[in-house]
């Protein structure tokens, strides 16, 4: 541990009065990091161990050999392939459309305010705060009447609607930072509002779009409640329903469940890593500005 202290001792601009602290903090953080990683490591280990090994209590031992059978089982299972296709078919359109609607809303609230638009904006974003259970039953009845129960459409529609508050909020806040003079100049030059939105405001708002893509993709991909209510047949199941369903299919299938959990987490991890820089910035914008 001694070598860790070195960079602090050499060339620090102001000599700090307490030198042991960096080492102590480093040790505390390391212990916490190990504790924090344990559950994730558990999933990782379970995916490369046989269910028998796990049942004998060897899940948490460092693996001495890698068993690929779980992944082979999962990837060759046609219903699991279906789960992934379904989830993608829901997540991609719902993400794109909810963000598009948020852009349209956000532009009006930021650049074309009207009498009562402030209140309307508050009503929309307060939708973020309410537990989804409040609208569950009427929606079930509505979709049942439209014969949308047990179709991917029901889940796509509800995610588009549930995404409107957050997308509107973020886009409005971002569009508000686009200078008004820019818009007015473009309008004077004969541009329409549509052109101002697509040619000026949107290209300036790429960081906000990155945040929304990450948020919406992660939220919709990971969602469990709406598919649980609306989807009934196995062919229409999403990945998250599939993980739960595996428990029923095999009596104990810890290894297979671990492998599927790992695969199911990859898309959101990839999206997050891809947009990470913007995402953390965007999420914390409010925290800095107040």
């Amino acid at each position: 541990m001694a070598d860790i202290q070195l960079p602090h001792g050499t060339g620090a601009p102001s000599a700090k009065p307490f030198n042991p602290w960096p080492v102590v903090i480093f040790i505390i953080l390391s212990i916490l990091a190990v504790l924090f990683l344990a559950p994730t490591v558990g999933v990782l280990f379970s995916s490369i161990k046989t269910t028998k090994e796990i049942a004998f209590g060897r899940l948490w031992d460092f693996p001495t050999s890698v068993y690929w059978g779980n992944f082979a089982d999962i990837l060759s299972n046609p219903s699991v392939q279906g789960y992934f296709v379904n989830t993608l078919l829901i997540t991609v359109p719902a993400t794109v459309i909810s963000i598009t609607l948020g852009i349209l809303n956000g532009y009006v609230f930021a650049k074309l305010p009207f009498r009562g638009s402030g209140i309307l904006f508050l009503v929309i974003i307060s939708g973020m705060f309410f537990p989804p259970q409040v609208i569950l039953i009427p929606l079930f009845r509505l979709f049942n009447g439209l014969h949308l129960i047990d179709t991917l459409w029901s889940v796509i529609f509800i995610h588009i609607a549930m995404g409107i508050p957050i997308c509107t909020l973020l886009m409005r806040n971002f569009f508000a930072t686009v200078p008004n003079a820019l818009r007015e100049a473009a309008i004077l030059e004969g541009a329409s509002e549509w052109q101002v939105l697509t040619k000026i405001a949107l290209p300036l708002s790429l960081p906000a779009l990155a945040v929304l893509v990450t948020l919406q993709f992660t939220w919709i991909w990971n969602d469990f409640l709406w598919p649980l209510i609306f989807i009934q047949s196995d062919e229409k199941r999403t990945v998250m329903l599939g993980i739960v369903n595996l428990k029923g299919q095999y009596s104990v299938a810890w290894g297979v469940q671990g492998a599927l959990s790992l695969l199911a987490s990859l898309p959101t991890l990839i999206v997050f890593l891809f947009f990470q820089k913007y995402f953390i910035k965007g999420m914390t914008m409010g925290a800095v500005k107040g």
Binding site: L101, L104, L112, F114, G127, P138, I160, A161, I164, E193
Partner: peptide, 29 residues
């Protein structure tokens, strides 16, 4: 007048979705 036109064009679709799938279910609960 121009502003009014664009407000309606931009808001109509998102508001329709929001009212049908959020506000209406909320009240009928």
């Amino acid at each position: 007048k121009e502003n009014r036109f664009w407000q309606i064009v931009f808001l109509s679709l998102p508001m329709a979705v929001f009212v049908i799938l959020i506000i209406w279910p909320l009240t009928s609960s």
